[in-house]
Structures are given as C-alpha cells and as structure tokens.
C-alpha cells in the first residue's frame, strides 16, 4: 500500500463531479420530482465511485475494475430511469424501460462471465452509450415535433439531455476502441488520449448538468 497525498486524489474529474453534486444538492433537494432528487444521489454515488477507484489504483495499487463494473449498473439504471421520466409525459410506456433494462442485465451478466470478472464490460458499456445517444436524439425529435413552444434555453431537461449527448456521443470512439487503447496506449493512462478525452467530456457533462440543476430550480420557483 503506497502513501499518496490527498491532493493526488483530487483530479479534474472528481472536482467536476463534486461541484456538480453540490450544485444539484443546493438547487434540487426540495424538488418535487423523484427523478431529480435521485439525480443528487446518483451524482454522490458517481463521486464516491470515482474517488474509490482512485484510492484503489493509487493507494492500494491494484486494479479498480470492480468499482467501474459495478458503477456501470448504477449509471445505466439511473440514466434509463431519468430518460423514462422525460419521455413519460409523451405517452411512452414503462415497458420500454423494463425491456431495455432486461436486455442490459442479460448483456452485462453475459459479458462479466465472458471476461471472467477480470476486465471492464466494454461491449455492454458501448451498447449502453449508443442506446443513450439514441434516447437523446429521440428527445430532440420529440421536442421538434411538439407543437407547443418551450423556451429550451431555460429548460432543465434540455440541458440534462444535451450534457448526456455530449458525453455518450463523444465517448463513442473511446468505447469502441477500449480494448485497443488499453493495450496500445503509447503513454501512461494519466497522459493518455482516453484520459484527455474523458476529462473534456466530464467537464462538459457536469457543466451542463450543473446548469440543468439551476434551470430546474428556476422552473420550480417560477411555477410557485
């Protein structure tokens, strides 16, 4: 077990996640929607998972795959549930959510057994990213076809989806070539292309999601 200063555990990712969690906590803790309140818990779990991953890698100097393999499940269930709450007002049945989650679970367990619990479930994560990108596109399509005008620049849902789109669409190339990058990366992870891309994506994602929390707070206040 190595001795690592606390400052080494604070990275761009963890800092962005923590700030986003704080913003969500401040602006959403009184929100009436369960999905938005669960969002706060999800951000806290994300921060905890990221920090745990860092501690395992830097302090215990072992592979942190189990953390990320577990977190993928949390990520998929929360994000899918959140998308479902966005589509629900437009008459989409809960069957879609359960159907997708069942498919995900089968894929996830199969891949875990396939890699003997010794590797990241990259294929499942890639499929999940593609499904979320499609969900984002579908959300835009619904907004475009909706005859009612909605000020999207102030819409919490719009910014939440846009953040998700940037993250899941931007990470597509990295996800698809995950195995290749893992084996052939020219430099160490901390200065690798994957690290840079995910840092950029995380900053974009958490900036959008923080702004989305602020928009949600404004919406709640203006409806009073």
């Amino acid at each position: 077990m190595g001795s690592v200063p606390l400052s080494k555990l604070i990275t761009l990712n963890t800092a962005a996640e923590f700030i986003c969690f704080l913003v969500a906590l401040i602006f959403l803790y009184r929100d009436k929607s369960a999905a938005w309140r669960v969002f706060i818990v999800y951000l806290l779990l994300t921060f905890c998972a990221e920090t745990t991953g860092l501690v395992i890698r830097k302090v215990f100097l072992t592979a942190n795959l189990p953390v990320y393999n577990t977190f993928v499940v949390v990520e998929c269930f929360f994000t899918s549930y959140f998308f479902y709450t966005l589509f629900k007002p437009y008459g989409y049945s809960v069957k879609w959510l359960f159907g997708w989650l069942a498919l995900f679970t089968v894929m996830y367990i199969s891949e875990l057994f396939y890699v003997n619990f010794a590797d990241f479930v990259a294929v499942t994560a890639s499929v999940m990213s593609i499904v979320f990108v499609l969900a984002c596109m579908w959300f835009y399509y619904i907004k475009l076809t909706d005859e009612r005008y909605e000020p999207l620049l102030q819409s919490a849902e719009f910014w939440w989806v846009s953040g998700a789109l940037f993250f899941y669409f931007g990470s597509t190339a990295c996800n698809i070539f995950f195995d290749y990058l893992k084996q052939n990366e020219v430099s160490a992870y901390n200065s690798s292309i994957r690290y840079i891309i995910f840092n950029v994506l995380n900053i974009i994602l958490y900036s959008f999601w923080s702004f989305s929390s602020v928009c949600r707070y404004r919406q709640r206040k203006s409806f009073r």
């Binding site: 669409f169 931007g170 990470s171 597509t172 990295c174 990058l181 052939n184 974009i204």
Partner: peptide, 21 residues
C-alpha cells in the same frame, strides 16, 4: 496513428452535438 485517429474521431463526435443542439 490509430490513437491519433481515435482522438480525431472523438473531436468530430464532440463537434457534432454542438451543431445538433
């Protein structure tokens, strides 16, 4: 070169949502 290609693809994939939004 492949890593550079992946980086470039990711940049394109980042620009695309900007236009979409």
């Amino acid at each position: 070169e492949i890593v550079s290609l992946i980086g470039l693809t990711s940049i394109v994939f980042l620009i695309a949502p900007i236009f979409l939004i």
